[in-house]
Design a binder for these strands. Structure first.
Lengths: 335, 335
DNA sequence: GTGAAAGCGCTAACAA
DNA sequence: TTGTTAGCGCTTTCAC
């Protein structure tokens, strides 16, 4: 049962005017005499009238609503970005509808072919989900203005993080500390597809090694059993027992770094003396643990994307724009 | 510009049928011959038709949409609960609209008097925001089915956490460890109002002390300068220097406990030997730090609330129901 | 300044 | 099985 029980008809009747006057009083207050308007407003208040936007949207040709698609359940970071989005749209009286998606690593094919998003939104924000060829096409032809976060497509405006540079920064830092063999720790890739961020970071690290005059870039790739603290900790125990091992471990995000760190500690391996550990994100976890990491401006990326979308909604004809967020190295005690 | 440019009229024309057949094919596929249906679906696809729910809602008398109100930007826990909500509603094809609210401690008066929520939702989920007298009244009279999370009201179905019992459990544990003087560490209360959870926990702790035959319940109340790691850490430094001090510190949530912990460590004060530290929530932070804490089933509380709301939407006449989530003590190394 | 009336796109009786 | 048609609640011309 939609809760819009009170209609303008009822308000009109109670106020002794016609429905159009009520509508006018509500939408174009200046076109109604102050006296009538005040009476209508008062009556509407008493009756508990609340514009069932549902219907108004039709005439207005705008829903005042955007949809956000992201793997919210899989990654906390997308929830953090959501905050930035809410901050950007809230004040403008735009509703934000959230849709959870399976994460890219969990879903086999470039998904989004079948979007569960209703048509009645003014804009779309797609985060952390690669756009398939066909999906991009459909979206481009029939979709509302759309902004991509964490994925790229020539047809769409996007906000991404400079992962290559982030990897470069971190590796450069570690090389400077004398490390020569690195490892990259990450969640399991279920789909062969999309590993973009990790790939780019590895590229950046390789670049750092080359620039440092290192011979063959030597970066061990470690896929964990799961994307959580426990998996990282478990692997650390194993890692600690190895005779030969990298001297620095870079985790795909702070949580994994934290788990690895605690696993090392449990095994009696010292940080950073024996093994250096770094992460990505710079959340509270990193701050508390003294973890060297690369800061990602999550809330800001959300806000930025939201603002781009707002502008795109105002003027849908804009050419696609790519925004690249600059990484910031945060050096602490673990490296 | 709403993106619903293609109407069923166009689809109908292109498919050579009437609009009602299109509507039927889309909503009650079984009532249309497979052949016609397939053709319609295909044409609709080609044209890029997407049901502008906007209009359908009217006839259906349901919007297929609920709104969630919570201090998302202030507390991560509400974002976590959102995941549970999405899980509960997603499969049922219900849109979830999120609204950020100032947190209860930041807003002077019991807010919610002026809800920014549109009328066209089938249900409302209000988390972490106390319902003012008047607000409850309005909501009850004119609002959609509503479920409260983390706050109570006789008129509404609610899901809350048993904070009193949580405090009791934690204090009992600490008393058992020989502690006699406790401190409760929390964010600053900006508003004199709503401190409910903290108050209840203190009550529970006091009960534990009384039951243990302790004389006067002795719990020091510490209000930090901010609700973050840095504030907790800063206070820990001060705390470490005190001549007389409680031997156990209970933080309002893990983040504060973590900050306090790291502050103590920096000051050379050992845990748990000199000072025991415990938190609330049991997020990854607690797991990594080995923090004793009380687990709060966040995602589940969201899911539970969502399910109650679903049922309430189906049958709005149900009498209000109170669900109390049971706390679970997680004992680790910091106590 | 206000009212009458024509849609907005769609669903659901009801007819055919 | 399919088409016709009366609304759903509201906005917006266009008269008055």
């Amino acid at each position: 049962m939609a809760s819009t029980d009170v209609t303008i008809y009822q308000v009109a009747e109670a106020a002794g005017v016609s429905i159009s006057t009520v509508s006018l009083a509500l939408n174009h207050p200046d076109r109604v005499s102050p006296k009538t308007r005040d009476r209508i407003i008062r009556v509407a208040g008493e009756l508990g009238y609340r514009s069932g936007a549902t219907t108004s949207e039709r005439a207005r040709r705008r829903s005042g609503r955007i949809a956000v698609l992201a793997p919210f359940s899989s990654y906390e970071t997308y929830r953090t970005r959501l905050v930035g989005i809410l901050e950007a749209f809230g004040p403008h009286n735009v509703e934000v509808v959230v849709h959870d998606t399976p994460s890219a690593t969990e879903s086999a094919s470039p998904l989004l072919e079948t979007m569960p998003v209703r048509g009645d939104v003014d804009g779309l924000l797609i985060m952390g989900v690669p756009l398939g060829e066909e999906g991009a096409d459909r979206l481009h032809r029939w979709g509302p203005p759309t902004v991509l976060v964490d994925s790229l497509n020539a047809e769409f405006t996007s906000v991404t993080f400079d992962d290559e540079q982030a990897g470069y920064l971190l590796a450069t830092h570690l090389l400077g500390r004398g490390h020569r063999s690195l490892a990259y720790l990450h969640e399991p890739y279920r789909a062969s597809a999309y590993t973009s961020a990790g790939r780019l970071r590895l590229d950046g690290m390789a670049r750092a090694i080359r620039e440092a005059g290192g011979a063959e870039p030597e970066i061990e790739d470690i896929a964990l059993a799961g994307n959580d603290v426990a998996s990282a900790r478990a692997h650390a125990a194993e890692f600690a027992r190895r005779a030969e091992r990298p001297t620095a471990v870079i985790a795909h995000h702070d949580l994994l770094a934290a788990g690895f760190l605690s696993g090392l500690r449990a095994a009696g391996t010292r940080t950073p003396d024996e093994v250096a550990v770094a992460g990505f994100d710079d959340g509270p976890l990193a701050e508390v643990l003294g973890l060297t990491t690369v800061r990602q401006p999550f809330a800001e990326s959300g806000r930025r994307a939201a603002e781009l979308l707002r502008s795109l909604i105002e003027n849908p004809q804009q050419t696609p724009l790519r925004t690249l967020l600059v990484p910031q190295l945060i050096t602490r005690e673990t490296t």
